[in-house]
Design a binder for these strands. Structure first.
Lengths: 195, 195
DNA sequence: AAGAGAATTAACCATTTGGTTAATAAAGAT
DNA sequence: ATCTTTATTAACCAAATGGTTAATTCTCTT
């Protein structure tokens, strides 16, 4: 794709793809070097160890997730705009970055201590505003935690279960992509309708 | 847990736990042998290779998922009973088998060819009955594929995102478990209400 | 042009890892 | 009791893998 990358960035780009697909344990430094068109020693020159290279890849991936959520929780937009934006942005972003969801989720489950560290640094997650908006919008009938979980689940699940859902629904790549676009509106309706 | 297991079953039990946590590439045959209290050669005596041992673990795990879905789609129960049962059974089963969701999902994404093979054998998935019931119940306003995806997503996501959700909602293990029980009813309402 | 510092490589190395082998012990059959 | 089959082990082995080193090339400054 991008030919004008310095060695370090090229390594990161290639490593991202390989770590996404094979995970920390499954990835091979040699494979990353080969695909990046470099000597293996270069990887250790720019990133001391495999773990450090993995770390950088992971933290970049995680930021994509977290930033979207922080944005959602801390903005002062109207609830329905917030939710609508979150859904659009998340689905678009995941279409662009196939594999990123399972990658992040997998690593967070293998290594749960990471969660504390990652959340400690960045501006603390605060559900307060969101909770208030939910309460107002639905006259206290909707629980904010449940609502939040539904929203994220309905957006992300179609990506992590993609191989299975494609099979069950008998859709090819193109049809699945189109279906994901339809799904944006479906999720918005489902979440924001007052059942 | 179970002391009265023959060597083969003991290996399977231990391997399941380790593969769930570390995946195929991350697991070590030596570690499995140690934890099972056996010589490493025993693993190769009962299961020719690491891959074969992994296969057996995976297929057992996958069956838990698929059987639940087949049951849902092929039974002749009323829609609301079907859905209600699926939600209860799935959440209970996942509480009992922590880690199984990410394990299955991870492997299906790493190795998508598996999906075809796995679905080919077992009684073919047939959405027809389900689609008809959905259409009747919701007067054609609800798309069966979307409904199905929502249902599975809302049940499974809380397990794969457990470390993150625990942190965001500030819940410990016990509180999270209790919350999952509450969630059963929430999901039923959300799915079966006519919004 | 020369020298310094960064980038890049080929050749190595130690360790880990899946897998094998040959010998031994245990269990079942006759 | 003896033979046969099954279960189990210790000791090995070859390949793979992350990482290192010392030398070489490139680049930029003066």
């Amino acid at each position: 794709m991008n030919e004008t990358l310095n060695a370090r960035d090229k390594i990161l780009e290639v490593a991202t793809g390989i770590f996404y697909k094979k995970g920390l344990a499954g990835a091979r430094m040699q494979e990353i070097a080969d695909e990046a068109g470099l000597n293996k020693a270069m990887l250790h020159y720019y990133f001391k160890t495999k773990e450090q290279l993995f770390n950088e890849v992971f933290e970049k991936a995680f930021r994509i997730f977290l930033s979207r959520i922080i944005e959602l929780l801390n903005s002062d937009k109207l609830l329905r705009n917030k939710v609508s934006d979150y859904i659009d942005h998340t689905i678009d972003s995941l279409v662009q970055n196939p594999g990123i969801s399972i990658f992040v989720i997998q690593e967070l489950n293998t290594n749960p201590e990471r969660v504390s560290k990652l959340f400690a640094g960045k501006g603390n997650i605060n559900l307060a505003i969101f909770e208030k908006q939910i309460s107002e919008e639905f006259a206290g009938k909707v629980n904010a935690e449940m609502f939040f979980t539904d929203m994220v689940a309905m957006c992300i699940y179609p990506f992590i279960a993609q191989p299975m859902l494609k099979k069950i629904f008998k859709k090819n790549d193109a049809a699945y992509k189109a279906w994901l676009q339809e799904r944006k509106e479906w999720i918005k309706n489902k979440l924001l309708s007052k059942g």
